[in-house]
């Protein structure tokens, strides 16, 4: 019962964070909001596992936590260097992205 209520609270929190991701205003606000959204998705997946009685959801939650972390770093790296490969010495000097 409490789990269902907590899940509803989680969904409301996700809506607020999504609003921040859309509103921005800077790129970094969006990345932060998406990262925070990912943490809540992990919690939601775990809660869904208990609600539907299928603990397999926890494996997906664990995997999502990993992908969320790597994804955040990849997005940041991409916006700093404009590619994901080996950085050349001239990269990342005067690129201001807002």
């Amino acid at each position: 019962m409490m789990l269902a209520a907590a899940t509803v609270g989680l969904l409301v929190a996700m809506l607020i964070v999504l609003a921040r991701a859309i509103a921005g205003p800077s790129l970094y606000d969006r990345v932060l909001a998406v990262n925070s959204f990912g943490t809540k998705i992990v919690l939601l997946l775990a809660a869904m596992g208990f609600l539907s009685g299928r603990p397999d959801f926890l494996d997906i939650a664990l995997l999502y936590a990993l992908i969320n972390f790597i994804g955040t770093l990849a997005v940041l790296k991409f916006f700093r260097y404009r590619h994901l490969g080996v950085a050349s010495p001239s990269d990342g000097k005067a690129e201001t992205t807002r």
């Binding site: 019962m1 409490m2 789990l3 209520a5 907590a6 609270g9 989680l10 409301v12 929190a13 996700m14 607020i16 964070v17 609003a19 921040r20 800077s26 970094y28 606000d29 932060l32 909001a33 925070s36 809540k40 919690l43």
Partner: peptide
């Protein structure tokens, strides 16, 4: 105990998200 922890956690998640919306800058 599970209910109490879940409720407290959900409240803190909500406060954090609300702060993400309300605070003035990055």
């Amino acid at each position: 105990l599970a209910g109490m922890f879940l409720a407290a956690g959900a409240i803190f998640v909500l406060i954090g998200s609300f702060g993400l919306w309300r605070l003035p800058d990055f």
